[in-house]
Amino acid sequence: MKEFIKNKTVTYNLMSFTGFKALILFSLLSEAPRSYEEIKSYFLNHPYLKEKISLDTLRVYLTSMKRVGCVVKRERINGVSKYSIVSNPFSLEVTEEQIKTLVKLYKIVVKSIDIRELYSIEHFIMKLRKSIKNPETLDYFNKYSLLRGVDLDLLQNLISAVDKNEQIMLEYNSPTSGIKDVELITKKFEIKNDKIYLRGITLEYKPSGAFLLNRILKIKTVKIVPEKIDLKPMVVGVEYYGDLKGLNLQDGMKIISQEDGKALLELTSTNEFLLRQCILEMVDNARIVYPESYKKQFVQNLKEIESGYSDD
């Protein structure tokens, strides 16, 4: 070895010359398909090898690689026969136990991270899938992924639109009215109850809307300078009787006061549906205090739900 370091000449005594040639060949064929002529020329011009390789020797090397678990492919490309290694035994193999534990970690973080981090985890898994020996093991992750069925390129474009609050025209597969165009000024992403929503101000009716990410089909147009729309948010006062520590304080929610085992919360939103969902989620720990009209409407809604269950 000392000799090699000194004069950069590879000698047969200090290393396995055949082993070295096998590694060179493995590397060449893993990069891209190569013809016999290309391999021969590479060996001839290699600074340490400087020798030809016969077709018979090449075949012996390929057979040896197959014996250790390499999958060697031979195909005709532009009329020339080329060899390549499509898989090798050194690739990472992810065990079922490992992916189950990774999913366990994913479940811990998934509800506390933002959409960009969700995207990155998905991208990491996708990269891993391309690099491991048994990509099918990662199907288990897909079962739990919040981005299952979401086009990652489209998501990246949507993230970029939200970052700039762009006005975009979406093709959206609505659960009620089917495929339609929706124009909105993008505001933010929201992860709620295992679903991801894109929130923004819709141009047609001008309320703040929430669109399920997995139902967005494509971005049709982008307006860099959005229209100016002044939306008046709804403010609702709610008395909360539960334990405040257990309450997940969301955007637009603040504690106004606290006394005698109850707290006054103020909820501000431009989307009435999401506001109602938020109050309903508090079940019997909440009581709307103001505005009176919204309170009446809410109670009426509760009575309707109750009568739906009492009927049968």
């Binding site: 396995s16 055949t18 082993g19 096998a22 040896s64 197959k66 250790v68």
Partner: peptide, 13 residues
């Protein structure tokens, strides 16, 4: 898989 293989090649891999 052909019978002709190279021992050193197998060992290094």
């Amino acid at each position: 898989i052909s019978n002709k293989y190279n021992d050193s090649c197998i060992k290094i891999f």
